[in-house]
Design a protein around this nucleic acid. Structure first.
Lengths: 224, 224
DNA sequence: ACAGGAAAAAGTGTATACAAAATACAGGAG
DNA sequence: CTCCTGTATTTTGTATACACTTTTTCCTGT
């Protein structure tokens, strides 16, 4: 584990939340690796807080699926097998289809405009070649759709699912040859939503996620 | 709140888990009502433990959506508006369809037998008229399907969603006139899975959940 | 009587202390 | 040398103590 975990003390939030976000970031960025133990005292001294907020943060990571704990042994960062990834992607596909379908029914001018901006941003970011930035732009594009779906719980679940595959997603986005297809798919989703053609957008999103699924699974197989 | 919360000390589990299950039960059974505050000291003395496990249990309830906390004010049992319920049921429908579709692809003799037993149990339980028992039999029937879907994360999410509507589901099951339809639907799901007719089972489950949706929403409207 | 505000009470946030379990390790028997 | 065992150490589990915030209460002045 890197030894430069640092708290964002900027917010006036309970420490448990700060710790939670800090650890989550560290896990998603790969600074703490799957299988690595999350030891309370160690983390506490590293972050300069007591064990109490650490423990509560771990409980939260646990429920988010980013950590697994065994009683009296402690917590470790969740490992992801190919099967786990398949499972997550199956769920994500179903929920993404739901979300875009709902968005299609509810979407208004406001969100369409935001979506257009996000679309252009994404296109722009692919030219920069900065993977982090591309990932961010992609997240923003899909976030607009989730917001338009007007179902906070669904948005929550999708964000959580996205987290769980984030590490592999970044790898996936390193492959530049897929950028044109991604842009095209985003464009089609936007067009479909604008037309209010529910069947079409669900179809496209379905393929969109399937494509991801194939690539991400390849990446995992290589890693194993 | 009832003052007879009691810990199941039988298990050799961390107290946080025992407290978590105890509070969850109490919330689902309506012993602690939506909007009611979850005060740490009060709960701690009532359950005979310290605040520490209570706090960790609350963090878990929070992530499960059964409690909401505002910093420095504490936690309370989550209220459910009609919109919340709609949102949950939308998600549940999508995931239930996914689950039964997957089950249809994977199901073997073993699970089909268990499903048949569960089907008969459900039919039997409706004759008893005991709502708790019927709910239990219904849960077991669907659990077999979830297991056959062979996606633990999905099962987890569905169990969680089920929890969130449990309170209202019980009301729904008090209406005896719906029993024949429920039995019929279960039977059709079983038959469909046996035939491996994915399209059919997804269709039936879709209706099955939609029917629930209508009734549950009526119940909420009455309550408001 | 009523509004304002200080003091008290209640409650959460965090740190620390102590207990119990798991793990690591060293020494001895075979 | 290997395996067992008992002890030391580490780590988690739980309780408690203290700090700080929010809420309530009640007194005071108008």
């Amino acid at each position: 584990m890197t030894d430069k975990l640092e708290l964002n003390t900027n917010a006036y939030l309970p420490l448990r939340d700060v710790v939670f976000h800090t650890l989550r970031e560290a896990i998603l960025k790969g600074e703490i690796k799957p299988g690595e133990r999350l030891m309370e005292l160690q983390l506490a001294s590293k972050l300069g807080v007591s064990r109490t907020p650490i423990r509560e943060a771990i409980r939260m990571l646990e429920l988010e699926g980013l950590a697994v704990t065994t009683p009296r042994k402690g917590a470790e960062v969740a490992k992801m097998t190919e099967k786990d990834m398949e499972d997550v992607l199956q769920i994500r596909k179903a929920l993404d289809e739901l979300a875009v379908g709902l968005a299609c029914e509810n979407i208004g001018e406001h969100h369409l405009e935001k979506l257009f901006v996000a679309l252009k941003n994404f296109e722009e970011s692919t030219r920069s070649g900065d993977v982090k930035q591309i990932a961010q732009a992609d997240v923003e594009f899909h976030d607009v759709i989730y917001q338009a779906a007007d179902n906070p719980k669904l948005m929550n679940m999708l964000n959580n699912l996205r987290e769980q595959i984030y590490r592999y997603r970044v790898e996936y986005l390193k492959n530049k040859s897929s950028y044109p297809r991604l842009i095209e798919e985003h464009k089609e989703i936007y067009e479909g939503l604008k037309r209010g053609d529910k069947q079409a957008v669900v179809e496209i999103v379905s393929h969109h996620v399937e494509n991801q699924e194939i690539v991400v699974k390849n990446i995992i197989q290589e890693q194993e």
